[in-house]
Design a protein around this nucleic acid. Structure first.
Lengths: 189, 189
DNA sequence: CTCCATTTGACAGTTGACTAACATATGTCA
DNA sequence: TGACATATGTTAGTCAACTGTCAAATGGAG
């Protein structure tokens, strides 16, 4: 089948690119280099990814909507912050690929541009989660508060992810998330 | 005096650039265009700003160290979160230029790259504030907690800044910051 | 095997960020 | 005024992302 090969090529390019990014940085890596390592011609690269940046802007959209569904699905007795935490631990944590997360993290950490891409992705998440909270609660006054909760919860989560990637996935992801949220509670007395 | 003119040229370039960024986006604006609007040659542009991105990476370093000093200067009875809030309100809020903040925000919002630059700046702030907290408290165990507090406090602050810029500086900045921190407390019960 | 479609590569060209070299203007000081 | 340093403009050139075109290879259908 033809589509099989296409998928393989796509992944090969992506892997080659992420390796190089992690190793020498995003801006220091040229498309030619990526193409060479992936054993394709530069023009083929541009047929698969219209832009060098498109390699990163991966399609996590389906996972995001899963997460939002999980937020909306939390019972209404649970307060918002807990709802987000539970949703994250139910719908996100189990699907994380350690190798890809670590490598992507390394690549992103080295490039302002990739940080920007990551920031934008995080921002989209924040908005989506805030919407989910907003809908779950129904109070039309609370939009700004939902944003704040989403921002804070995803911030804690991001910190835990960083710690986890830093430890090369040796520590338990869920435990780190729990610890983060505990700290948050303590911080507010 | 010579330095007077240099400063004026620098500001002219910066203003021209930010206007164009806000109007047509960062990536759609070429250095030549900026130089033309600022009435200088492209090479002069590069003498003032080594990179197109340097226009944004403004010298907020002195303000950042002021902020950190303010954090360190808070009396030790006050808990960390409050200390950051008070420091922000004392050492940052009074120095904000509404026009520049609004325009920069508009420019940044339109470009993934500028978001990245902004994110990196925010990250540097977070680290610096966490250091200040860490030093103020002296507990060598609490590094991760300081980071979390800094991230959360600056997140609240960033949200307030956004709201403020969105309102075209009509609302009172300090009040918005207070509201944000109140919401944070409420969120944790 | 043959026809056909799709994938791929080779190549030439555009654009824009950035650098280096040299010449010119402009303000400073003796 | 004259000598000097510094700021600026001009020009040419590099490098890499990206586009478009055409020809060769590949793989499935008759």
């Amino acid at each position: 089948m033809r589509s099989r090969k296409k998928a393989r090529t796509r992944i090969a390019i992506q892997d080659a690119a992420l390796d190089l990014f992690a190793q020498q940085g995003y801006e220091a890596t040229s498309v030619d280099q990526i193409a060479q390592r992936a054993d394709v011609s530069p023009s083929t690269f541009f047929r698969y990814f219209g832009t060098k940046a498109d390699i990163i802007l991966n399609d996590q959209d389906s996972q995001l909507s899963q997460l939002c569904a999980a937020v909306r699905g939390q019972p209404s007795e649970i307060r918002d912050l807990e709802a987000v935490r539970l949703a994250l631990q139910a719908a996100w944590v189990p699907n994380v690929d350690p190798v890809r997360t670590i490598r992507t993290g390394r690549a992103v950490g080295q490039s302002p541009f990739l940080c920007g891409v990551a920031y934008n992705i995080g921002r989209r998440w924040m908005d989506a989660v805030a919407d989910a909270l907003f809908e779950r609660r129904g109070d039309p006054e609370a939009r700004e508060e939902c944003l704040l909760i989403a921002r804070t919860a995803l911030g804690v989560f991001g910190g835990a992810t960083e710690q986890w990637a830093f430890s090369e996935a040796k520590e338990d992801f869920n435990t780190l998330v729990d610890q983060g949220f505990e700290m948050l509670e303590r911080m507010c007395h």
